[in-house]
Design a binder for these strands. Sequence first.
DNA 1: ATGTCCGTAACCTACGGA
Length: 253
Amino acid sequence: MKVATWNVNSLTARWSRVQQWIVEHEPDVLLIQETKQNDAKFPFAAFAAMGYESAHYGQGQWNGVAIISRCGLDDVQRGLGDDSEARFIGATCARLRMYSCYVPNGRALDDPHYQYKLRWLGMLRDLLAAREATQPVLLGGDFNIALSNLDVYDPAALEGMTHVSEPERAALREVLSTDLVDLGRSVTQEPSFTWWDYRNGSFHRGWGLRIDYLLADAATAQRVQTVEVDREARKGEKPSDHAPVVATFDWTL
DNA sequence: ATGTCCGTAACCTACGGA
């Protein structure tokens, strides 16, 4: 089984690249963030023609999350707690409870959006803490948080900024403390960035952050074979500023 | 330390958000 998460920064702008990527990598499930579409615009039929069912929670100009699956897609859940923005969607695929998450950016430590980010992470923790212990769960998305300094190209350059502050890191550790494993970090202690700013030639200078994660319950994590960041997807014409994170599992569907 | 890209509204450029 192969599962990927990818913040595409507009599915409209990224459509041909997303399509090509799926054909080349053949994920069983793809968790998408920032579709920036409403449901009417989402390419349900095109995904179906490629062999995938899809579930989308869109709001138009901003946000928007989706799950596409070729191994079942049931019990779709849209939204998290009392949040009014389209940042969270869940579905059951092949007996795995899957979630695609787009955590609020936070903008700046003194911005109200940062408090919204912390509150959102609290709701995510509560949802995961309330799950049934026997239910395999796989959560992926853009968390807009670098968990440790190993996930930051230059910690000094980001001092005092969002994505690296202690309260949001603690909030993400609280999510993980519900018996989840950070799959990317479980396979390597090397830096493995997933996002590079479009500005300043950040990608070719190596100025990246690891802010996209795949998280799974301990039993599912034990089945992991590989976890990789597809840096190729950050290159070339009109890339997203995020690269996909791809995990394979010893799990026959 | 802010050099790009996205969608939108309204035009052929500026803006908010990331």
